[in-house]
């Protein structure tokens, strides 16, 4: 494991913790897209199918359990918790997220490294993760008042993707046989989706004003 991978995993972990902190302590999920959270739950469920059959390291297993547990509990909070769900911006969060899943599944059936159930599911999770942030970005754009925690959540997610790209560059030069087009291209697409957000995030930080995305 290199420093970029670790930094990527940690920013990913912090993003989830920030979100859970917001939901659990403030009892609010205002500004958070349930559509994006449901997509992440599906992403982790389909990617970690091998969690108990393919052991890599204790670190990997624990992190997988954290991401699975946190993503499903966030969805539970937003759908079922009697206080939290009242703060959900249902009318603003209208992205038709199920329509993202079908193209990702078809693409995974066509473009994969091996045509097996596990491999297709794993590829599907990569494609879906690449676009899963879209409902959240649309919601951010509609929300006039982006609170700090929501802004930090999306920033940390974007940072996680950026670190993963550095990790792949590092691994490409330090390891043999490390060419994974599917992972790289879907990862790059995913990171580029954050470019616009990053621009406005740094602008607001530099000028010390509240984050607001242009409509």
């Amino acid at each position: 494991m290199n420093i970029f991978r670790l930094a990527g995993d940690m920013t990913h972990l912090f993003s989830v913790l920030v979100l859970l902190l917001k939901i659990h302590t403030i009892k609010s999920c205002a500004g958070i897209s349930l559509k994006t959270q449901e997509l992440y739950a599906i992403v982790f469920a389909t990617r970690y199918l091998d969690i108990f059959t393919n052991y890599i390291s204790l670190y990997n297993t624990i992190m997988k359990l954290i991401f699975l547990g946190s993503s499903f509990s966030i969805v539970w909070y937003m759908r079922r918790h009697k206080i939290v769900r009242r703060s959900y911006d249902k009318d603003q969060d209208t992205f038709r997220h199920y329509f993202l899943m079908l193209p990702c599944l078809i693409l995974a059936l066509i473009i994969n490294e091996k045509f097996t159930f596990r491999e297709v599911m794993w590829t599907f999770s990569l494609y879906l993760e690449a676009v899963a942030i879209l409902p959240q970005l649309v919601l951010l754009q509609r929300t006039r008042n982006i609170d700090n925690l929501t802004g930090q959540y999306v920033f940390l997610l974007g940072a996680y993707r950026a670190f993963y790209i550095l990790n792949w560059i590092y691994r490409y030069f330090t390891e043999e046989h490390f060419v994974h087009w599917i992972t790289w291209i879907s990862g790059l697409v995913q990171t580029l989706l954050y470019a616009d957000f990053f621009y406005y995030y740094f602008q607001s930080w530099k000028n010390n004003v509240k984050l607001e995305l242009p409509a």
């Binding site: 991978r5 995993d9 393919n54 890599i56 390291s57 990997n60 490294e113 990790n167 390891e175 992972t183």
Partner: peptide, 10 residues
């Protein structure tokens, strides 16, 4: 193997 390398990430 190649597969192992891809799957060791999260």
């Amino acid at each position: 193997t190649k597969d192992q390398v891809a799957k060791d990430e999260l």
